[in-house]
């Protein structure tokens, strides 16, 4: 297999304050989307949104005006229930008008409840957990076959990695030395039924992934300087796939949603909660 050519550092170089403002707007849109739909998954959307902001506004080689460019970087949102996060960031990045976000989960809308390929900028439908890493492996293999040096990012949830498919795909990524593949784990510690440590403990996670032959790195998934260091780490790895473990907070930015499994899959319960969420996000 031909090794990919060296990738140039082609990042946009937006500063932390600019990125923070973008993710603030995205957080606000996430709340508006799930409240308008009266359903959806705010908790895991708010925990991943800062990382998505860095990826779509700095890190990834993408062009919203040329969405089928063969050399584009790909992102697979394996935790497909975080559709409010992905859809809002795609809208802010210019893939489609922001007005469409308010039709989320409604009949006649393209914005399906879980991430859907029919939405501009989305690479694959997801929603059943555990499948996106394998899809990322396939995309990364295609990049190698074609000697087309794009990179593939896969966003995983920490509940999601309880799926056996993930560990199978970790083996495959390692076997084929997919140095163009970057998995990012949104380790917010909460899944639908409660705390991940109670549902299915996964101690020494970094060691486990290391032992599968991936380069691992832990960082704070809400600090843009830290996020960028993680991306630097990924760019520096040349001989194996990369697994970034982001320590995050479920429901980050809305006090009553933080670390609360109730808001894994429920919108603000009433007008009061809705207003409070938007106020807290604006004040941050």
């Amino acid at each position: 297999m031909v090794e990919n050519q060296e990738k140039q550092d082609d990042r946009k170089g937006l500063d932390n304050e600019t990125l923070r403002k973008i993710s603030q707007r995205a957080r606000s849109l996430i709340i508006k989307m799930v409240y308008s739909a009266r359903s959806g998954h705010p908790g895991g959307s708010l925990s991943i949104i800062d990382i998505l902001t860095e990826l779509y506004f700095n890190e990834m080689n993408i062009d919203p005006t040329d969405q089928n460019l063969a050399s584009r970087d790909r992102l697979v949102m394996s935790k497909g229930h975080a559709s409010p996060a992905l859809y809002s960031i795609l809208a802010l990045r210019g893939y489609f008008p922001q007005e469409l976000l308010m039709d989320f989960r409604k009949i006649n809308s393209k914005l399906e409840g879980h991430v859907h390929k029919g939405v501009p900028g989305v690479e694959t439908s997801t929603g059943s957990l555990g499948q996106g890493l394998g899809i990322g492996v396939g995309m990364a293999l295609a990049s190698k076959i074609d000697n087309n040096p794009y990179r593939v990012f896969v966003i995983l949830g920490d509940g999601e990695i309880e799926e056996g498919n993930i560990w199978e795909s970790l083996m495959a990524g390692s076997k084929y030395r997919l140095n163009n593949l970057v998995a990012i784990l949104d380790k917010n510690g909460v899944q639908l039924d409660g705390f991940t440590r109670d549902i299915m403990p996964m101690e020494r996670l970094k060691d486990r992934i290391d032992s599968f032959g991936w380069a691992t790195y832990e960082f704070n998934g809400h600090d843009f300087s830290e996020i960028r260091k993680a991306m630097d780490f990924a760019r520096g790895i040349k001989d194996k796939p990369v697994f970034l473990i982001a320590k995050t907070v479920k429901g980050k930015g809305v006090s009553y949603m933080e670390n609360n499994s109730k808001y894994h899959g429920s919108p603000p319960a009433n007008e009061e909660e809705y207003e409070q969420a938007l106020k807290e996000i604006d004040a941050a």
Partner: peptide, 16 residues
């Protein structure tokens, strides 16, 4: 690892 096989096939197809 059939699950890995099928999802990788999906990724390959998505990439042309």
């Amino acid at each position: 690892s059939e699950q890995s096989m099928v999802t990788a096939a999906a990724g390959l197809a998505l990439a042309g």
